[in-house]
């Protein structure tokens, strides 16, 4: 079950994303990925604001891996 703080932070990230403030979304999610490395949505959202395709692939792979683990 997702941490409520993590949930609230994802909402902030989503709001910033809606505002087009991608840089701060990225910063927030990068920090979140250190604190909540097992949260799938952190990685999938981070993929949306990745600097390049390599980063995006890496983040999505991480999310996919976590997803598989969760359903194993």
């Amino acid at each position: 079950m997702r941490n409520s703080e993590c949930e609230a932070l994802l909402k902030i990230a989503n709001r910033l994303y809606q505002q087009g403030d991608y840089r701060r979304v990225r910063t927030l999610l990068e920090i979140m990925s250190e604190v909540y490395p097992r949260e799938v949505q952190v990685w999938t959202t981070l993929a949306m604001v990745a600097h390049n395709d390599n980063e995006k692939t890496e983040y999505l792979a991480r999310a996919s891996h976590l997803q598989r683990q969760a359903h194993a």
Binding site: E5, A8, L9, I12, L28, I31, M32, E34, V35
Partner: peptide
């Protein structure tokens, strides 16, 4: 304040 708390808490954990 709640949003601020969440953000500052995140930073203290990082």
């Amino acid at each position: 304040r709640e949003e601020a708390r969440n953000l500052f808490t995140l930073l203290t954990r990082q």
